[in-house]
Simulated assay, not measured.
Amino acid sequence: MARSLLRRIASAVELDLRWTSARLDSMGAPESYISAIMRDDHHDEPSLRALLSLAGTAVERALDQPLRLLRERGAADSVFVWPGQHYRLLASIVELLKPQTVVEIGTFDGASALALLENLPVTGRLVTFDVVPWSQVGQTLLRAQDLDDGRLTPITGDLCRLEVFEAHAELLRTADLIFLDGPKDGEFEPCLMSRLGTVGIRPGTPLLFDDIRLWNMLEFWHTLDLPKLDVTGFGHFTGTGLALWEEERI
């Protein structure tokens, strides 16, 4: 009897999701995903002020970002949509922070890397991680010459593998900005955050999270115990989160 009841519940949920997907499709948006709305009451006022100040200034500057590197590479028109895509916001935050070391987790086609490079100081460096070598991504926007001046370093490796993480622990510890755009599989992100808590990242270091509104990221973002701010309305339509590192809360 219990098994029969569970089967009926599961069938109802599946039917409801199919109906929801059909409703989304009927709205005619270029992309649509099933997400949820959750209330979050965990705010620490001093940290919130710092987050609001950083986000507010970055948003103000975002519209004027030319994204020259992406235009030169013939990136898709959708890349330049803002708000809706996060590339202008990424470039704006780098312009504002002037970081010497940026770590990106999730290279894929290199679009985000080029946005982060847009305003990176000439003495700065961007290290970008992925499990697939950048040169093997068919639609990559990166070129071999991008590596010539040492500002961009692609690394192939899974940071949730202990040996890979330990090999790059000093890099992560000294990063001035970390952008997490990983697999969103419900495992990698919690694993990485747990490991980051062991290396002594400087308190106040900004972390950017992509796709926080996607279904697999909802619990991760909701339970992330850091000062945080959802800036989706000014970033990626699938969710953009901004947080500040506080080691004692990890």
Rank of each mutant, 00 (worst) to 15 (best):
V79Y: 07
I37H: 06
L97D: 02
H86E: 07
L6E: 08
P154M: 05
I34Y: 04
F129C: 13
G241T: 14
N216G: 07
Y87V: 01
E118L: 09
E166Y: 01
L117T: 02
D16S: 13
M27I: 12
A29C: 10
A167H: 03
L63C: 03
E219W: 02
A91Q: 01
D230I: 09
A113G: 11
E219L: 12
E163A: 09
T128K: 02
V13N: 03
A76V: 07
D211V: 12
G56E: 04
F165Y: 02
V127L: 08
I37W: 09
L90Q: 08
I155C: 01
L172M: 12
Q145A: 13
F80A: 00
E72L: 14
E246G: 11
P66S: 09
L224Y: 07
A144P: 01
E189P: 09
V137C: 04
V137A: 06
L196P: 10
L229Q: 13
V102G: 00
I212M: 05
G124M: 05
A29F: 13
T123V: 04
H86Y: 09
L24C: 12
Q136N: 15
V137R: 14
A175C: 02
Q100A: 08
S26G: 10
L96K: 10
E246M: 15
R161W: 00
E14R: 13
G233K: 08
P183V: 14
G233P: 01
A58E: 08
V199N: 05
R8F: 01
P66Y: 05
E104T: 03
V59D: 07
L152V: 03
A167N: 04
